[in-house]
Amino acid sequence: MNKNGAPDEEQLWFDRHMRSELSRFDQAFEQPELDPMQLEAFVQNHRQEMKRKLWRELAFFWIVAAIVLVVVLGALNRSLALFAALQAAAGLGAIGYIGITLGKKVKRLWKNS
């Protein structure tokens, strides 16, 4: 439809020249229905695989978190200045990351408006 509510000319052209052939093509490549039992097994298997992946990632996260904690505590034990520098670097990194992510989002919204 165009702004006046009339069907747009290109849509009419498409319906006249393309639609019926594309519908025929769809009909020609209609797929037989999948077996419900097989499909359920497929869904179930993928769910289990996702769970395993999630646990692996969680374990990796805990290991990294433990390493970071040990490093931070070590730095705090050794020198307060080193600890402050590490904290400042981490803070700046986080601000930079958030800034870049937000910037990209705003840019996209601006382009879409």
């Binding site: 769809d26 490549f29 209609e30 797929q31 229905e33 999948l34 419900p36 869904v43």
Partner: peptide
């Protein structure tokens, strides 16, 4: 339910 949805839409998606 998810299997049913995928079954219903499989051909449409493939086309």
């Amino acid at each position: 339910s998810l299997s049913e949805l995928l079954r219903q839409h499989y051909s449409f998606l493939y086309q």
